[in-house]
Write a protein that binds this DNA or RNA. Structure first.
Lengths: 152, 152
DNA sequence: TCTATAATTGATAATTATTATCAGTTAGTA
DNA sequence: TACTAACTGATAATAATTATCAATTATAGA
């Protein structure tokens, strides 16, 4: 069984446990999210689901995303007035590294984050429940492209 | 001269240098931002400016904020669909610690952040240009309140 | 100081992402 | 198979932000 199949099953079970019904449209939405390599927007998900179920409504996608957020099964990434992007593959908060040129979003592993949280608690007395860490920059591919442009 | 007076003068000079005119409403907006301890929303700024200039329009506040963002003199903190908050006091990116109960936003000092950026660059090859670091939790005051509620 | 003019203001309309509403449909259960 | 509450889909409503535009005003130059 592939990773995303496992993830899809997990999400379905969570929804069942919450008393939700499993509709074909819902499975399609969960399926897109369970892959979710590209951190899709609602519009992205809508387009992909419509390919399979042409009558699907945008509202249905929003409603499902909202339930999944409440269940803690997707993480929302909002960027100002732009539409939010969603991660249903790794639903717990984790840092993102965003290339401002090609808009790619990747998930780096950062061991040093632990010490930041520890320092925060020590300094402020807050009890930290969640976080949102976005680093913006230029990915290696786009850096290379810039050099080539300048060179040639 | 107080810190916020200095900051206000800096912002005024930046705007002059960019060819902007200095109107009374603009000074009022800059002044609110230059204090900016509480990371105010556009609505907050609007209310404060209206106290001094009752005919001020919300659009004027938005337009000024937009110019200041372009000049790099305010930092915008957007939270999903909620209205953005602004920091004109420390316009460069820095971490925020947000109490999800009372909505207070504070600016912690975090030395350990350096090592996170360093690790990112080492692991991914990105050139990091900016970041957005928000930690969510419950502040000491709200934690205490919870305990009191439970206790009494 | 006075004038010209282009930037700014203020009122409001437009836009855009998201949420609410609601009648008709359907998954799940007995 | 029938019941019922949850779900879907279409659309209206909401809310933050942006655009528009006539009237005002800061600033430079005479």
């Amino acid at each position: 069984m592939t990773d995303h199949k496992i993830r899809l099953e997990t999400m379905i079970q969570k929804m069942r446990a919450a008393g939700c019904r499993i509709t074909p449209q819902r499975i399609a939405i969960l399926s897109v999210l369970s892959i979710s390599k590209g951190h899709p927007s609602v519009e992205d998900i809508y387009e992909q689901v419509k390919a399979e179920y042409p009558t699907t409504s945008l509202a249905t996608v929003y409603k499902n995303i909202s339930m999944l957020k409440d269940l803690g099964e997707v993480q929302e990434l909002s960027f100002g007035t732009e539409s939010s992007r969603y991660d249903g593959n790794k639903p717990d908060p984790h840092p993102h590294l965003i290339c401002t040129r090609c808009k790619k979003i990747i998930d780096p592993d950062l061991e040093s984050l632990e010490s930041v949280s520890a320092e925060l608690v020590r300094e402020t007395g807050f009890s930290i429940t969640s976080h949102r860490l976005d680093f913006f920059g230029i990915c290696p591919a786009c850096q290379k492209k810039t050099l080539t442009d300048k060179g040639g």
